[in-house]
């Protein structure tokens, strides 16, 4: 890699050589040659030596690399997009701001060389695929912060932490407070538990995959006034049997995966026996979502809740059934 100082250094060496090797006696010429060699070696060593990267403390404006799309959204939402020097290939929002930011890896999976080329001072991640990278960042003098941001309650705290690290504490605090207040309001508007429709969240169709009680999207369904069938399952996501869905007979089915022209809904309704489910009979199999705010714990969380609430409330309230009373 060419350093910014290499151009003037080379011109200086050319001039020096022309001066030193002007006609003279051989021994003087030899001594001058040796001295030039020594000077050249010293200059090369000086320019090639690894310099410690500037730390966050050394500079007022941090150079931030985000290794998670929700953290990228947070950085941009608090007005620190100008500090962002690297992102993952799945960071796509806000598109006008992230488009200019170089891609330096996948979600939690940095590509070290492109990342280091950006000379970051702060690397933000939700989780690293390779935990040993922590030591690498330490050795290179790069501050790495792992930010917990997988659950609803963690979003305001994550915004505040990122704000402090990016030097935008006040803006971050305002945003976090606004989100907390909106979440409280949404929670207060929820109907009682026995009147909420039972929702099957279909994360994938084949094999059938749903969200368990620890999944972020399950929290959104609860906040939007539904009851996630998968809340009886531990963990985030699980492959489940179609038998179980038929036996639970959900009132709403949300297909949260990309499809073309209602292909997900058509596939659900084409399954054996699924036309008899409450959800199918009441026309409440929904597959048209903008998925990022729903699946990504970040500043657009309320947008996700709104989409799910609209999907649950579509086609009026469900007919009162034995299932809803349970």
């Amino acid at each position: 890699m060419t350093t910014p100082s290499s151009g003037p250094a080379v011109s200086f060496l050319h001039a020096l050589c022309a001066r030193i090797f002007s006609p003279s006696c051989p021994s003087v010429c030899f001594l001058r040659f040796v001295s030039v060699l020594l000077v050249t070696a010293a200059l090369t060593l000086a320019s090639g030596c690894p310099r410690p990267a500037p730390t966050a403390a050394a500079s007022t404006i941090p150079r931030i690399v985000s290794l998670a799309p929700n953290l990228t959204e947070i950085v941009c939402a608090i007005g620190a997009a100008d500090c962002l020097v690297g992102r993952t290939e799945v960071c796509n929002h806000p598109s006008n701001l992230v488009a200019r930011v170089p891609v330096v890896g996948g979600f939690g999976r940095p590509w070290l060389e492109p990342l280091l080329e950006q000379k970051p001072t702060l690397v933000l991640s939700v989780d690293l695929e390779d935990k040993s990278l922590d030591a690498t960042f330490d050795r290179l003098g790069i501050v790495h912060r792992q930010i917990a941001c997988r659950q609803l309650r963690e979003i305001p705290a994550a915004i505040r932490t990122v704000g402090q690290l990016a030097g935008r504490g006040a803006v971050a605090n305002d945003l976090a407070r606004a989100i907390e207040s909106d979440l409280r309001r949404a929670a207060a508007e929820q109907p009682p538990l026995n009147r909420r429709p039972r929702v099957f969240i279909e994360i994938w169709g084949d094999p059938l995959m749903t969200a368990g009680r620890h999944a972020f999207v399950s929290e959104l369904v609860t906040l939007a006034g539904g009851r996630n069938l998968g809340d009886e399952l531990p963990g985030d996501f699980a492959i489940v049997s179609p038998e179980w869905v038929l036996q639970r007979n959900p009132d709403v089915i949300l297909c949260l995966y990309p499809g073309v022209d209602h292909s997900a809904r058509k596939a659900v309704l084409a399954r054996l026996g699924w036309q008899s489910l409450h959800a199918a009979q009441q026309g409440r199999v929904q597959d048209e979502f903008y998925l990022d705010p729903i699946l990504r714990p970040g500043p657009r969380v309320l947008e996700g809740v709104k989409q799910i609430r609209q999907a649950i409330e579509k086609n009026d309230t469900p007919k009162k059934s034995g299932h809803e009373e349970r």
């Binding site: 179609p242 038998e243 038929l246 036996q247 007979n249 054996l272 026996g273 699924w274 036309q275 008899s276 489910l277």
Partner: peptide, 14 residues
């Protein structure tokens, strides 16, 4: 006797 029961049986048979 219910459509869901029939579907369950078909699923298992398949």
């Amino acid at each position: 006797t219910t459509p869901i029961g029939q579907a369950l049986l078909y699923l298992r048979l398949h």
